[in-house]
Nucleic acid binder design. Structure first.
Lengths: 224, 224
DNA sequence: CAAATTTTTCAGCACTGTTTCAGCATTCTG
DNA sequence: CAGAATGCTGAAACAGTGCTGAAAAATTTG
């Protein structure tokens, strides 16, 4: 995670930098508004800590400028001016958080983490062999080939993936997917395993669903 | 934009609600922590305003609970306790902003806007494929062809655009567009998806609304 | 108030996913 | 080895979802 500090008080700037680096961030620092704008627009930072009182261009202008250019990097605004109107101006200029000086270092860190938390957000998938199952969309992925699974197909495959190569009895799959007291019979599982095998093959997966007589099914990776 | 207020002081709650509604937001309010959690987890709100001092479960617990369940709705935390440690606790519990009482209404609004900006991005049009949705005028744009959307059409499409290709269940669309406890049934969503498809086609968009059986809808770009 | 637009309702069609079933293949058992 | 049990597969029947067009109801606009 890269953080940019825009602050003309070099003592303070260095302190913050040290603290953040200790937390594992990669930190750059500049001392005036104009360079601040240039650096922010590089679009390589995950967060900007921006002082309001700056030479050349003040923090409000910096925020407004980069926002106007469509830059969405989160901005944590820092300042000694703590009047309500200043805070409102800061937020309206495009800042994401307004922290009045003097502040506690721990509070700064909490803010930084809160702002960065928002950045994340990746899709979760189950992976096995050269193949992945994207949970949100019930999609089977192998390289650049994608294939959608039906609800039951998805349930069965997810179960197999989650048990990571371990054996699952048809009984067990039946109760998990079709429910505790359903009419469903073991052939249902066999049919769906058939469907899944066909789909896995058709997208070039190296994952096989192996049957063991009387015991059930489990996953294996081809050529291993 | 839907906002949830979790605040036991009903006077204050109603004041905030009035202000926000005047700004054009759709606002719900609950008065204790436990219901707060339930409502937030519906995942239909764009922002939560959360008081710290609450019956049943305090604001910190509420924030921690919903975050633990993977809910990413922005939280604006509101409280009379303004000691540094309280602020740090709030942020670490999963809040996105900490606003000490008493606060200026304009400051609250500035915070709300700052937090929401991040959601939709600071944009007035949402773009997908060769097509754009102009928020201010509810207009669909593709090349030089323009088409007006009705209120509900707009809401549904905006939701789909904001989730950027991710899947949304009919349930979810229903609660977001028609509200938590409305008579609306899933066929409503189907009908509106039909309307939108027709309009998208008629202006030559390459954006398709794809249905996944049992799962819901999501956007895709033709020929990709 | 009338006209136009938007929203809701509803019935029937089309399609996809699910279940059923019969026959074949394979493995196990005595 | 024969017969039984188990697993696999394709075809057909069935059920549930989603789609659509038309019309009624509600709402907005002129």
């Amino acid at each position: 995670m890269r953080i940019l500090i825009v602050e003309d008080d070099t003592m303070l700037s260095q302190t913050i930098q040290a603290v953040l680096e200790k937390e594992g961030f990669s930190v750059d620092a500049v001392t005036d508004g104009a360079s601040g704008v240039d650096y922010i627009l590089l679009n390589v930072y995950d967060l900007v800590i921006l002082d309001v009182m700056l030479p050349v261009q003040d923090g409000y202008q910096v925020a407004r400028t980069v926002r106007a250019k469509g830059c969405g990097t989160p901005i944590l605004m820092l300042t000694a001016r703590s009047a309500v109107d200043d805070r409102i101006d800061g937020l309206n200029a495009g800042a994401d958080y307004y922290l009045p000086k003097p502040f506690d270092v721990r509070e700064l860190l909490a803010c930084v983490h809160a702002l960065l938390r928002r950045q994340g957000g990746q899709v979760d998938t189950l992976v096995y062999g050269n193949t992945a199952l994207e949970l949100a969309s019930s999609t089977l992925i192998c390289g650049d080939r994608r294939m959608r699974l039906s609800a039951k197909e998805f349930d069965v495959l997810r179960l197999l993936l989650q048990s990571g190569g371990n054996n699952l009895s048809k009984e067990h799959i039946l109760t998990c997917v079709w429910g505790y007291d359903s009419e469903a019979v073991e052939n249902h599982v066999e049919v769906y395993v058939g469907f899944l095998r066909k789909k896995l093959r058709s997208i070039g997966s190296n994952v096989r669903i192996e049957a063991i007589r009387r015991l059930g099914y489990h996953l294996e990776v081809d050529g291993a």
